[in-house]
């Protein structure tokens, strides 16, 4: 579809329901998946709350869009970096997050984890490698 492949990173920095940034970021990711770029997502600051499991928005009358993250693997969006320090600062661990997986076509469709917890320093290195950064 496109003439070149770039490294695209979507930075998610905000909690899921206080503002619409998280949901509208996810919409870009889903549309962008059709462009066959090298996509990764980063979750840092309050953005780590986007991946917390067991979200229930009934009382605030908002659409719970967290199940959409489960679909990312089917869109070949398989690299979700979560910043370790942001988790720790909020009293969260990997066990508090939704288990997100994808099937690796290069490894006999083995089911693999999409989420990778990385340190702030590691995430900075990963950002450095990107061609395009969308910040939400």
């Amino acid at each position: 579809m496109s003439e070149q492949i770039k490294k695209f990173m979507y930075l998610n920095r905000r909690a899921p329901y206080g503002t619409i940034y998280a949901w509208e970021s996810l919409e870009v990711v889903l549309i962008g998946a059709a462009f066959d770029q090298d996509v990764s997502l980063a979750f840092l600051d309050d953005g780590v709350f986007q991946l917390v499991k067991g979200q229930d928005t009934a009382e605030v009358d908002m659409k719970n869009f967290s199940p959409t993250y489960q679909a990312l693997g089917d869109y070949d969006v398989t690299k979700l970096f979560v910043e370790k320090e942001s988790l720790e600062e909020r009293g969260l661990t990997l066990d508090d997050l939704m288990p997100l997986t994808y099937e690796d076509e290069d490894d006999d469709w083995a089911e693999k984890d999409s989420i990778k917890v990385v340190s702030r320093a590691e995430l900075a290195d990963i950002m450095e490698e990107q061609d395009v950064m969308f910040s939400f």
Partner: peptide, 10 residues
């Protein structure tokens, strides 16, 4: 559409 944003990034 949002494709215009992704295309702009590319």
């Amino acid at each position: 559409g949002l494709g215009q944003l992704v295309e702009a990034g590319i």
